[in-house]
Amino acid sequence: MSRRTEQEIREELEAHLRESEARLQQQGMDAESARKEALRRFGDPDQWARKCADEAPEIRRKNRSVDVALALGFAIAGWFLADVATMVSKAGLVPLDLIVLLHLAVGVPLCIAGGIQAVRTRYRTSRVLYALSGTLAWWFALVFGTWAYFDVWQAMPDAPEEAFADGAALTGVIFAGWLPGVFLMGGTILVTWLVRRLRARGARAVTSS
């Protein structure tokens, strides 16, 4: 269905260009010059075709479904990978000091990826979903990491008294652990937005020159 819509859009834009060419030829232009002039007046057909496709209801539905699936994927991947990191930590494969870092190695890329996708997507609801799921992936990593850290520490033969102060630490990351994630998400969104803006400005400058 979406392929047929895209094909129809292409046909329609091509019909416009042919009509322009014909009119220009009627005014005395040769075929090649007429084609060039028609394209100059029309702008980039690929760009306009993409923008038209964005408006097609079936393509919008498809894009939205992909966005929802991908956003859920970030959150689920955050949960799953943080769980794997916890299992690896409890198996004694990671030094105590690196347990939280290992978990963050899972949460940070997912949070950044969520932020990038939040800027790239065209739909407002998808933006919110990506931002939420990316931040959630970070939060899972921090909570699981803290939990695993204290578990491994407590299991050590000469565990000090502080190793059993896990309740306060866990409560802290559960309630405030999302804050650094929000900052990371915000920073990623800002940087991605700026990069896209600079790129678009560069592309416009090249086109106009």
Binding site: I9, E12, L13, H16, S20, R41, F42, G43, D44, P45, Q47, W48, K51, C52, D54, E55, A56, P57, R60
Partner: peptide
């Protein structure tokens, strides 16, 4: 400014 800019608007109105 560019004739092609008409078409996304047409498709939006169709939607």
């Amino acid at each position: 400014v560019e004739e092609g800019s008409l078409y996304p608007a047409l498709h939006r109105l169709l939607r």
